[in-house]
């Protein structure tokens, strides 16, 4: 056996060091040269302001990992060849499916037959990524190996550093205190005192459950304000679509044309995707049947609702809420080729 080629996708996790170590020592001994392909797959939107620092972080991580490989392999007498590269800087990588596809095409291009996966692998996304990624890797047929790592207990990791934890508790406290006073009487001292006590307990015990992502001191309030702008827009869309659907239903001939469509949405997993899928369902005429990561399967009742969906105005509005005005300026799903009408039995 001449060479053994291994692909190791890296991300900034607590277990990335151990994963690299495992990748080196798990290689069978008979290979003469070991080729390590260390890659960092960048998440969506590298052209956005934070994209530049993402690229720099990726390069720093790659050079660190390269020295780890050399360090670990120095005791053996095989030739080590390390190739590092940053993937996904020229395309949008959203869900696990995109990552799996990128890794697969990289592996095919470099004749790689094994992938070592970090169990904590989390490239930029806040949602837990491992299980869906494993599923997608299986579906593209790329063999992978999960590195057995020892990791610190999760609650320590979630707690984060002090400032992050304080932000979460602070935000949670005021949200629950506000809610308590809305239901109670904000001028009555008893409600003020009990409310503070209850909000304190809620904030300390539930803050890390409510916010699974680090809050941004400037970004998060702005997002909340932008969400306030989004609500009237959504209401307007709901009323408009409701009238269209009502007319169709009340017409004796009932000219419905139900179709199943697949739309690949360009919003992040978690809250943005939830907001988009729920908004789509709230607008009559479109109903989210499946949401597998960014692939939304949507049932549409009338052609005009489908056209609205393919124009992606809700998607742009959700991107405006989470990414601001520059983030909203993307081509419509139809122009991107992210829309598809599928057969009813092809769910």
């Amino acid at each position: 056996m001449a060479a053994e080629r291994v692909l190791v996708p890296l991300s900034d996790t607590v277990t990335v060091r151990q994963t690299v170590g495992y990748a080196v020592q798990s290689c069978p001994g008979e290979a003469e040269t070991l080729e390590f392909h260390l890659v960092v797959a960048l998440p969506y939107d590298t052209e956005m302001p934070e994209g530049q620092s993402l690229t720099e972080d990726a390069e720093r991580l790659l050079s660190k990992a390269e020295s780890w490989v050399r360090e670990d392999a120095s005791s053996t007498n095989v030739t080590i060849d390390v190739t590092t590269s940053v993937l996904g800087d020229d395309e949008y990588l959203f869900g696990p499916r995109d990552y799996a596809r990128t890794f697969d095409s990289y592996a095919a291009a470099h004749d790689i037959d094994r992938l070592v996966l970090d169990p904590e692998y989390q490239p930029g996304t806040t949602a837990q990524m491992l299980q869906p990624l494993e599923r997608e890797l299986e579906s593209v047929g790329l063999a992978y190996d999960e590195a057995p790592v020892e990791r610190p207990a999760r609650h320590e990791r979630l707690a984060g550093d002090g400032a992050e934890r304080f932000d979460k508790i602070f935000a949670m406290f005021w949200i629950s205190y506000g809610f308590y006073l809305v239901l109670g009487d904000p001028t009555y001292w008893f409600d003020l005192v009990t409310g503070a006590a209850v909000a304190g307990i809620v904030a300390v015990s539930l803050a890390h459950v409510t916010f699974t992502f680090p809050l941004d001191r400037i970004g998060s309030p702005i997002r909340t304000l932008r969400f306030g702008l989004y609500v009237p827009y959504l209401l307007f869309e709901i009323v408009k679509a409701n009238l269209a659907i009502s007319l169709v239903i009340l017409r004796p001939s009932m000219p419905i044309r139900p179709t199943m469509t697949r739309v690949n949405a360009r919003v992040r997993s978690g809250l943005p995707l939830l907001a988009l899928a729920n908004s789509i369902t709230l607008t009559p005429g479109t109903l989210t049947v499946r949401a597998d990561d960014q692939r939304l399967i949507i049932h549409t009742l009338i052609p005009s609702a489908r056209e609205d969906l393919f124009e992606g105005s809700l998607e742009r509005a959700v991107r405006f809420v989470f990414h601001g005005r520059t983030g909203a300026r993307i081509p419509t799903p139809e122009e991107r080729g992210d829309t598809e009408i599928i057969r009813g039995d092809d769910l």
Binding site: V239, N242, I245, S246, L250, T283, P284, H299
Partner: peptide, 30 residues
């Protein structure tokens, strides 16, 4: 009342569960 009525009519008239789910929940929302 009008939208609730339309929703009820829709549930009766529309052909399958997916189409009915549209109107059963959505028109009802409004």
């Amino acid at each position: 009342l009008f939208f609730t009525f339309v929703s009820a009519v829709g549930v009766i008239r529309l052909p399958d569960i997916y189409a009915r789910a549209h109107t059963a929940s959505q028109t009802d929302t409004l």
